[in-house]
Nucleic acid binder design. Structure first.
Lengths: 128, 128
DNA sequence: GTGAAATTACGAAGCTCTTCGTTGACAACT
DNA sequence: AGTTGTCAACGAAGAGCTTCGTAATTTCAC
């Protein structure tokens, strides 16, 4: 029941971000959203999304003239997929190294650290 | 004094891994090492490493006939670079999300969890 | 109905990454 | 000196990603 889980390219990921936060969207809606970040043509986005249909990254409702797109895999699954990939290729599979590097990288505020601590406690409690 | 920090491709990263763990290496040494993981031609590795010289990912000592290569940027810097990139593109810049996802992804053992806890304590202590 | 606007479809071009065959230079051995 | 083996250099080819121009189709306003 687990899909193949495709690793999206950078451009595809940008589109998926929009679909995740906006839900069902047309090409125009996605394009308008992406324009806020950087300049790009409408047909560029269209072409990318058509390819993503073929790959199975998104699904498409063609019943009306303006097609409506939807992300085919969840945000969390995709994050896991990309993270696992990086883990193997750059951290020799050591989740600890990755987490430590991520923490040292960015200045997390206290609230964030507390949330991480809470999750860590949860993991520890589950292993008595 | 901080270099531009180039984001290496997958193939380049595989070569960097060898250079990081083995130090100064010839193309043949890198190729032999990579062969343990997957099949690939000698000239393929050579070509990649030549391109990496042009990009500044590695440096090369050409004084003897068989050139000797060396990684130009450290393993930690490169990890940070790749991690930051993923952070922006897939986690909306939230280090907390990334860390939580990484932790939930892999079954870390107690020792690893303890090490992460220790690092977390360090960060907290630094912010009173 | 006709013209304008929006949308999809198509194809091509440029780029990077990856792969490898061939060639020419150099070295070592006989 | 000639043969053999190793190496760097080069070019080319194929794949994937990104970009966009153009054409074809549908819809809508008038």
């Amino acid at each position: 029941m687990s899909q193949p889980l495709i690793r999206p390219s950078d451009g595809e990921l940008a589109i998926l971000r929009v679909l995740w936060s906006h839900g069902l969207s047309t090409v125009r809606e996605v394009h308008d959203e992406l324009l806020k970040e950087r300049e790009m043509g409408y047909t560029t986005v269209l072409k990318l999304m058509q390819i993503m249909v073929e790959k199975g990254l998104v699904t498409r409702d063609e019943s009306s003239r303006t097609h409506v797109y939807q992300a085919a895999q969840g945000e969390e699954s995709t994050q896991s997929c990309l993270l696992n990939d990086l883990l193997q290729k750059a951290f020799e599979g050591s989740a600890k190294s990755l987490v430590v590097r991520a923490l040292s990288n960015t200045k997390s505020n206290d609230a964030e650290l507390d949330e991480i601590q809470a999750y860590l406690d949860l993991l520890k409690a589950r292993k008595p």
